[in-house]
Design a protein around this nucleic acid. Structure first.
Length: 720
DNA sequence: CGGCTTA
């Protein structure tokens, strides 16, 4: 706490003083906190003031910042005083002052007696679950024999059997003292507020130095093999199938130590997302458990060329650009407020895809829409969706705790965020609320928003399904569902969760599927959910758009990184795609080392870093982003003039989506795909499928062609 | 390979 907030001679505000609880006296009657009413921390009466009633988590979530658009609030860490000045919130002894954070309201008390000691017996055995020094003692993080004792944590049927897990029924507060050490004790005080603003101050959790000290966390070397054999068959099956699991982690320890820090601010190295093995993957390991969150993809490879035909088979109704000339959004059936909001968003009049689909959506039809990337698909579904909700809305509007009536699903968090940035202002213009539901961030705020009541949900499948299972999200009144990047949502790994989610929505609800590429991969969804869809695409706007110059560089493998470096050494925005997270990270590092400011974007970064790195490209703070295919679809960044495919894509659709990051809104762009000689045949086949013509050029570092492609020479020469 | 849930 800043010293200047302490009145001279006073004692620290009790909420902020970790040592307070130890001082037996309690209030001694001197002034404290702010003297001005309305200021945070204001205390009108000292000493005998009644103890402040506390909110439980849900109440707090419902009240917090209710006066500002919730989606625009700063991330947690930036609020209040940034956390750094809040030394002990949620920690140590303070904890005891808090009457059961987030528990009271959850389950009926009655449960308690029935579950006398769930999760406690074990606890004594591992007093500091998963943390600190204990870690080394538990080489097999979260695994091993404990597992068998709690056979179904967080899973299907168990869930229903113990409706009150993680809830009220644990123990009355005073029980606390008896509870061995759950979440308390010395560890707690040592941890400077896990997961909040102070993050950067956190000494070494999951970071460089510590890494080396923690010999066994989550890594290859974490547990002797023998451990595994002893484990009674739980959690084994997949393991054997994935022998290299954890071996191809992007950062092996070796690398880490070699380059402890290059001084890159943005390396992202310190912002790794938590590993996803153990718990995260666990559900799918158990046969017989219905929850199959991310189904394994062993079945992949059933792809046959015949499946991969372009949408024409679905008899798209083509719309010509000329058809929509002079048409306004009002003509299409949108209300005045929405039209005004669209104008504000920079969309004064409809694009063809919008003109094609908006009337059908308002008419209540299911719609399949294919439009070139950057053709305005978000508005094509967002605006009529809001219009529909208005028509059906009636008096429910703004009722506390009303159930959502529209759902927009996207394959990546970044895309969900971006969609919300467009849809939210449209919705707000007519008094409807949106909220984002996606993983990688604390769920409190999202749950709070749901409790206040929202109309439109924008999110990714994982968290949405999670909240459904927690009983915190009810889709039964969702009458309009949108799948953006629909074909990707039908890929293995996404299809099943998406199907489960769609089945949770109102029966007979309207479904809209949009993507830049659509093929028969969507058939299974169409069959089940879109009985007779209207299919739209925009004629003459295929992906081989004239504004993009496609090139293929055939290089020696050893020259590849060097050539990428030369290509990326330019003054305009460049997006580089790699196949793996590790390579994306390595390339970003290499570019930085070469003096080219670059950041990365991939699933090994935590969400904060992902958001920040993408924002750095958007804002122009850096010109180079190295990404996995997380950035391939839907992400819009202005003025990317060069897309480099450091690894060629496997699928023509991926090529189209990646290259769609440039040449947006009619601007020019170059797509350079770097391949080894051996890949030429495959590449040609892929380009044929994508209906793209591209020149092949062999290149070595320093070649003129690289200068050209980087834009250091004139366009005239480039095309010559 | 990548993407997608956890306090």
């Amino acid at each position: 706490m800043p010293k200047n907030k302490k009145p001279a001679g006073g004692r620290p505000a009790k909420n902020f003083d970790p040592s307070y609880a130890r001082k037996s006296g309690g209030p001694v009657g001197t002034t404290t906190g702010s003297r001005s009413p309305g200021h945070r921390g204001y205390r009108a009466v000292e000493g005998d003031a009644p103890k402040k009633a506390r909110w439980n988590a849900d109440e707090r979530a419902a009240r917090r910042h209710s006066d500002e658009p919730r989606e625009q609030r700063a991330p947690r860490g930036d609020r209040y005083d940034g956390g750094a000045g809040r030394p002990a919130y949620n920690r140590g002894e303070n904890r005891t002052e808090r009457p059961a954070y987030g528990r009271d309201d959850r389950a009926p008390r009655g449960d308690r007696a029935e579950r006398p000691a769930y999760g406690r017996g074990e606890r004594t055995e591992r007093p500091a679950y998963g943390r600190g020094e204990n870690r080394t003692e538990r080489p097999a993080y979260n695994r091993g024999e404990n597992r068998t004792e709690r056979p179904a944590y967080n899973r299907g049927e168990n869930r229903t059997e113990r409706p009150a897990y993680n809830r009220d029924d644990r123990a009355p507060r005073n029980d606390r003292g008896e509870r061995p050490a759950y979440n308390r004790g010395e560890n707690r005080t040592e941890r400077p507020a896990y997961g909040r603003g102070e993050r950067t101050e956190r000494p070494a959790y999951n970071r460089g130095a510590n890494r080396a000290e923690r010999p066994a966390y989550n890594r290859d070397d974490r547990a002797p093999r023998g451990d595994r054999a002893e484990r009674p068959a739980y959690n084994r099956g997949e393991r054997t199938e994935r022998p290299a699991y954890n071996n191809d982690r992007p950062f092996t320890r070796g690398q880490r130590i070699e380059r402890p820090s290059t001084g890159r601010i943005s390396s992202g190295r310190d912002d790794r997302a938590p590993r996803r093995d153990s718990n995260f993957d666990r559900p799918r390991r158990d046969a017989g458990v219905d929850k199959n969150f991310y189904p394994n993809r062993d079945a992949k490879g059933n792809f046959t060329p015949e499946d991969d035909v372009v949408l024409e088979r679905l008899e798209a109704q083509a719309t010509l650009a000329v058809d929509v000339e002079g048409v306004s959004f009002s003509d299409l059936g949108l209300g005045g407020n929405i039209v005004a909001a669209l104008a504000e968003l920079g969309a004064p009049s409809p694009f063809p895809i919008q003109a094609a689909t908006i009337p059908d959506v308002i008419a209540g039809k299911d719609v399949l829409g294919r439009g070139r990337t950057g053709s305005g698909k978000t508005i094509a579904f967002g605006a009529p969706l809001v219009e529909k909700l208005m028509e059906n809305g009636g008096g429910k509007k703004r009722a506390m705790g009303r159930k959502p009536r529209a759902l927009i699903l996207a394959p990546t968090r970044e895309l969900a965020l971006q969609i919300d940035r467009t849809v939210q202002p449209i919705a707000r213009s007519v008094g409807l609320f949106t909220t984002q539901i996606y993983g990688g961030v604390p769920q409190n705020r999202q749950v709070g928003a749901l409790q206040r009541g929202v109309d439109i949900i924008v999110g990714t499948p994982g968290r949405i399904e999670d909240l459904i299972e927690q009983g915190r999200l009810d889709l039964s009144e969702v009458t309009i569902t949108v799948l953006d990047e629909a074909d990707h949502m039908c890929d293995l790994g996404f299809l099943e969760p998406v199907q489960r989610i769609l089945r949770r929505t109102a029966t007979g609800g309207q479904k809209l599927l949009f993507s830049a590429t659509l093929d028969k991969g969507v058939a299974s969804l169409v069959k089940e959910f879109l009985p007779s869809p209207a299919v739209h695409e925009v004629a003459g706007e295929d992906q081989a758009s004239a504004t993009i110059d496609h090139r293929v560089l055939v290089v020696e493998h050893r020259d590849k990184d060097r050539i990428i470096e030369e290509l990326a050494n330019r003054n305009e925005k460049t997006l580089i795609f790699s196949r793996t997270r590790a390579y994306a990270e390595r390339l970003a590092d290499q570019l930085e080392d070469a003096g080219i400011r670059a950041v990365s974007l991939h699933g090994d970064l935590n969400q904060a870093r992902r958001t920040r790195n993408l924002a750095q490209l958007t804002s122009g703070r850096v010109n180079v982003l190295v990404a996995t295919d997380v950035a391939a679809r839907g992400i819009h960044v202005d003025d990317i003039t060069l897309v480099i495919q450091a690894d060629a894509p496997d699928e023509y659709k991926t090529y189209l989506h990646r290259s769609g990051r440039t040449g947006r809104a009619g601007k020019e762009g170059v797509v350079v795909t770097i391949i080894p000689k051996a890949r030429q045949r495959r590449m040609t086949e892929l380009l044929g499928r994508a209906e793209i013509e591209a020149d092949y050029v062999s290149a070595r570092p320093g070649d003129e062609i690289i200068e050209e492609l980087a834009g250091h020479m004139t366009n005239a020469k480039l095309t010559a």
